[in-house]
């Protein structure tokens, strides 16, 4: 299986094909509905973002609280399409990777093609298993949003499939 290191490299993104299984390792950020709204508002106001979007990957997740001996609680993907309206602006500001579940809008697919991005999908409702692949978590913005806060996480061998590649091929439309 293909191993991918984050942050994503341009050359690597170009080799990815919709439908292929991959294991992600490295650093990504977590953000979902409320955080996306705030990030986009900050960009529109010209404010500095809490993390550097250039080359960054965002995982759409709102984990359950960690117990004492855990890095994170259950941490599977949430439905990506709710973040669709925010993607074009984030893409213009350097976002390269997205991790979630489900179909994306035409606008997102266009942004992926234009900015040579990639969308990974992982198994919805497998938060216990996926939590084992997260080795560190640090909240870096919007702690008041609780599970929806933005965190920097480190993952190791995080199992996904390529959902949308730079050509706009879609895992959900593959024939086999």
């Amino acid at each position: 299986m293909k191993h991918i290191t984050l942050p994503l490299q341009k050359e690597e993104i170009e080799t990815l094909q919709a439908g292929e299984p991959v294991l992600l390792s490295g650093m990504m950020y977590t953000a979902r509905d409320a955080a996306h709204k705030k990030l986009v508002e900050m960009i529109e106001k010209g404010e500095r973002l809490p993390f550097d979007l250039h080359g960054a990957s965002i995982y759409y997740v709102g984990p359950t609280p960690a117990r004492e001996n855990q890095v994170i609680g259950s941490a599977g993907p949430t439905t990506s399409s709710r973040m669709d309206p925010y993607v074009p602006l984030l893409a213009e500001n350097g976002l390269k990777g997205m991790i979630g579940k489900g179909r994306r809008s035409k606008e997102v697919i266009d942004a992926i093609r234009k900015h040579q991005m990639v969308y990974f999908v992982c198994t919805g409702g497998a938060g216990a298993l996926l939590s084992h692949c997260i080795t560190s978590r640090e909240v870096i913005a919007f702690p008041e949003l609780l599970a929806e806060a933005v965190a920097r996480i480190e993952v190791k061998d995080f199992p996904c499939f390529v959902g949308l590649d730079i050509h706009g091929n879609d895992i959900y439309d593959l024939e086999d």
Binding site: S74, T78, G124, A126
Partner: peptide
């Protein structure tokens, strides 16, 4: 692979008392 993941996830959830899914 997806179905296997669900079955493995179910086991981990029970054994380690981690919610099956983060959306509880």
């Amino acid at each position: 692979a997806a179905m296997d993941t669900l079955v493995q996830n179910a086991q981990i959830a029970v054994e380690e008392r981690i919610p099956i899914c983060q959306d509880t």
